[in-house]
Write a protein that binds this DNA or RNA. Structure first.
Lengths: 224, 224
DNA sequence: GTTCTAAATGAATGTCGTTCATTTACTAGA
DNA sequence: TCTAGTAAATGAACGACATTCATTTAGAAC
């Protein structure tokens, strides 16, 4: 925030290069927050718990962070780093999209509370996220897509991925009709048939849907 | 909700059929909550505000509701009623799916905070939601789909719809690269080309994605 | 009219995120 | 070495919340 052009958010810095007295900084806070989340889920991520895990008082955090939301964004950036977008450099577009989507969804299934946040957050705050988009866009371009069709395709895929990540956190018996059984024969039949396959229905849906949307997008790009 | 066998959650009841003294009941609370939400957004839906809108004290609500979450579920059921699933009785499967998805997404775009809830909530609590699934499943069955492929197809579509509804609430300039411009040529080019079309990118993505996933599903159902 | 009970009350609780006046301790300049 | 200057930590306090609970209120049933 002082003289570097890139760092967008409050990073403590002083004239000399060396770190100063403070125990805290952005990296430490972000890592501690992520650790808390990984170990105990998002409900355990409170400012007090975070402060305690850093052996500091809650108010001390506010010298480095604007709000809890900002910490969530930091976590999001770290998590997003786990998404493999190098596949676009080695695989064909449809294969790359599939591989990318799989890691994307798997990772965010463990971070569902971030999803409503990301979906609405300006990407400008996340350089690393932008790099991912660049690689994905490059993949489309290389495959000969019309420029104006690329963003909608990416957004559509992401919407599907986020929705699927949310869905992946649902209980297995989410569709159990309970006392309403009997009045919904078609649905119950379908449910039973799907159960009989032994596959997890969230996974089956994700893979079937991913195949459909990727194939569908490829077909569309040739048609229009 | 009065004498139907289905009502799963705390509904006040007494030996005789007539309503008793109390000002409150499930329907009233749900409507008042929805009204609050429609007028001021989900952040204005607090137990105190809800109680005040019903001229009652906050604690009075807890004679009829287990928790705020339960109120959210009631709202969800009312909102879900707005989704048009009669189209499956009149249109071909792909047309019906498209029409259904459009109303589904449009409606939930105005109720984004419900989405993380729904995605994870057992449907057994919502008879009317189950009826919707029944109509959708009937549409698939009528079109000759294999039973075990129906649930995954529905779930995949819903995931896309929920993701798209979340996306629809994002700010228009969400992709503005800000200070990171320059290092991401492919993405910026795609962005600019999309912008030049004059279309809202969330809408473009939804419609492109919907076409892709519907077409893709149809193709898959013939292939496998 | 007595009893039973659903329903409303209002005070209180606990958990949050967040603010702020104050203190602490390191650093730079004289 | 002394003297600011300042980033950073402290702890008490605040204001929203959802939720609980002992108590009161007022119909209905017998």
């Amino acid at each position: 925030m002082k003289q570097e052009p890139a760092s967008s958010t409050a990073a403590p810095r002083r004239r000399a290069g060396r770190p100063r007295s403070g125990v805290l900084d952005r990296e430490l806070i972000a890592r501690a927050a992520l650790k808390l989340v990984v170990e105990g889920g998002y409900s355990t991520l409170t400012m007090s718990a975070l402060a305690k895990s850093l052996s500091v008082s809650p108010s001390a955090l506010y010298n480095h962070v604007e709000s809890k939301q900002e910490i969530m964004q930091w976590i999001q950036e770290i998590v997003m780093d786990g998404v493999d977008s190098t596949v676009f450099e080695t695989l064909s577009l449809d294969e790359a999209l599939t591989a990318w989507a799989v890691t994307y969804r798997d990772i965010f299934a463990g971070h569902a509370p971030l999803i409503p946040l990301i979906a609405v957050l300006p990407v400008s705050g996340s350089p690393r996220t932008l790099e991912m988009y660049e690689k994905v866009a490059a993949g489309f371009t290389r495959a000969g897509w019309r420029q104006e069709d690329i963003i909608p395709a990416i957004v559509a895929l992401e919407s599907f991925i986020f929705g699927s990540a949310l869905d992946a956190t649902a209980p297995l018996d989410i569709f159990d009709p309970g006392e309403n059984a009997g009045s919904i024969p078609n649905f119950e039949g379908a449910l039973e048939a799907q159960r009989a396959t032994g596959r997890n229905s969230a996974d089956a849906a994700f893979h079937a849907g991913l195949r459909a949307i990727v194939n569908g997008l490829m077909a569309t790009s040739r048609t229009t």
